[in-house]
Design a protein around this nucleic acid. Structure first.
Lengths: 226, 226
DNA sequence: ATTATAGTTAAAGACAGAATGAAGTATCTG
DNA sequence: CAGATACTTCATTCTGTCTTTAACTATAAT
C-alpha cells in the first residue's frame, strides 16, 4: 500500500500535473489544449502528463470530435485535491494577489456539488450585495451577518466548517464571466435548496430544475428572476 | 493560491517525503532516525527532507534530549494524506502483499482520533475473534455480521463509509506488537464510546480514562479485563 | 574524559523525469 | 479536396533536485 501511496503522491506532485488538478478542482472538464494554457506548457507536454494521470485513473476522458475533455474520474479525486488545498496557509488565502491571471477557458459545465451557471452566479452576486459573503482580494469570506443568514436558512456554518474540505472559494463561471461560490458552504446551500424542494435534480443529466416554489423563493430572497 | 497548492503537492510528492507522511499517518511521532529507516534512506537525507516539511509547517518537532520527534503539525495534514490514501485502488488494498516489511519502531503514542494502546489492541483482537472485522492479507475489512454489530452498537456503517477518509486500516501498535484499528470506523467507535460514557478524555493529555460503566461493558461485550 | 548515538550542514555528483523538437494521425472547416 | 486545428508519439536534451560524501555539533552512556 505504501508504494501505491507514493505513486499517487508523486503523480500529483509534479508542478504541471498539480496545475492540471488545480484547474479541474471545480469539476469542469477541460480539453488538452486548455489545460496546456492553464498549466503554461506545450501541447506535447500536457499530452504526456495527461497520459500519466489517465493511466493511474485519476482522470477520465471523453472524446468529442477532435477534442478530448478531461475531468476527475470520481469525486474522491476532487476531495483528495481539496484536502491538499486545505493546507494552504490561511494568510496566503486572504492575501492572494488580485492580479492572478485568469485562464482563457470558455466552457462551463455543472460543478460537482454546487450550483453553477446563471443561477449560481446570480445567487452569488445577490449574496455579495446583501453582505452575506464578502469579496476579499478575489477570495470569498463569510461575514458575521452571513453566519446568521445561513443559520436562519437552516445551515449551521460551524458544522459546515468542520467538513474536511475547502470551505468557500470563488469558481469562475466562464459562460457568465463571473464568479460563483464553490466549496463545502456552496455544497450545503445546494443540498438545502434540494431538500426544501426549491430545486430538483434530473435523473440522467447534471441539469438542475427550478420548482415553482424555488422560483418564488429565489425572487423573494435574492431578487432573482428565473 | 495555485502556486501554494503546487508547492504543497510537490512537497508531498517526493518519494522519501511521501514515505514520511505515510508513516506519520497513524498519528504517532517518529524520530528522524526512525523515519530514515522507514523511508529507507540516510540520516542526512531525511534531515534535509524533514527540514523542508518543517519549513512548510506540514510537520512539527518536539525535542527530547538528543532526539527529535516529528509529527503532523495539525489534523488537517492527516486528513489531506488520508484523502490521498483514499485514491489507492481497492483491488490493490485487498491484494496487498503480506510480506511487507515492518518498520522497526518501538514508540507508541496516542493516535489522533481512535483508540490505541492496550485497550485498542484488545478491542481489535476481540472484534477479529467475533468476526466483526476480518483480516485479509494484513488488511482489515468489515464483515456482514460486523455491519450488523455496528448497527446494533449505534453506528451506521454506510454513513461512516461516506466520510472522506480511509474507512478502516490496521495500525501497528509497537508497545503491544499487534495491530489495532484506525480510520473513520475506529474514530466512530471511539466517539460512540465517549458519548456512551464508557470512556472519558482527560483535559490536558491524550490519555483516555475508562469509566466504571466502560469497564463493565468492555468485559461483557469484548471479554476485556481492564 | 572517552566513546557512541542523534542529528545537522555544505558541497559535489548523479540521475530520473520533465521539457523540447520533429513528425505523425485524426477531425473539422470552407 | 486543401488547409487548419487538436492531439499524440518518439527520440533527444537538459535541468532541478535528490542523494552522497565528508565534516561538524550536541546529547547520552560508560
Amino acid at each position: 500500500m505504501e508504494e501505491q501511496f507514493i505513486k499517487i503522491a508523486t503523480l500529483i506532485g509534479d508542478p504541471t500535473r498539480a496545475s492540471i488538478m488545480w484547474a479541474l478542482l471545480d469539476g469542469r472538464a477541460f480539453t488538452a489544449t486548455e489545460l496546456a494554457i492553464v498549466a503554461n506548457t506545450s501541447p506535447q507536454n500536457i499530452s504526456m502528463h495527461l497520459g500519466k494521470l489517465l493511466d493511474a485513473s485519476l482522470l477520465s476522458v471523453e472524446k468529442q470530435g477532435r477534442h478530448k475533455y478531461y475531468r476527475f474520474s470520481n469525486k474522491e479525486i476532487a476531495y483528495a485535491i481539496e484536502g491538499m488545498a486545505n493546507l494552504i496557509s490561511p494568510t496566503t488565502v486572504s492575501k492572494k494577489k488580485s492580479t492572478e491571471k485568469l485562464s482563457p477557458v470558455k466552457h462551463c459545465r455543472t460543478c460537482y456539488d454546487h450550483l453553477a451557471g446563471k443561477i449560481g452566479v446570480a445567487l452569488t452576486n445577490s449574496m455579495l450585495e446583501q453582505n452575506i459573503i464578502v469579496d476579499v482580494d478575489n477570495d470569498f469570506e463569510i461575514s458575521q451577518e452571513g453566519v446568521k443568514w445561513f443559520s436562519d436558512f437552516g445551515i449551521d456554518v460551524d458544522e459546515v466548517k468542520k467538513k474536511r474540505r475547502l470551505f468557500l472559494k470563488p469558481c469562475l463561471d466562464w459562460s457568465e464571466r463571473k464568479n460563483h461560490m464553490a466549496g463545502s458552504l456552496a455544497a450545503s446551500l445546494l443540498d438545502k435548496m434540494l431538500a426544501d424542494d426549491w430545486l430538483r435534480r434530473t435523473t440522467n443529466s447534471r441539469a438542475i430544475i427550478i420548482t415553482g416554489k424555488g422560483e418564488k423563493e429565489l425572487h423573494k430572497q435574492f431578487k432573482i428572476v428565473v
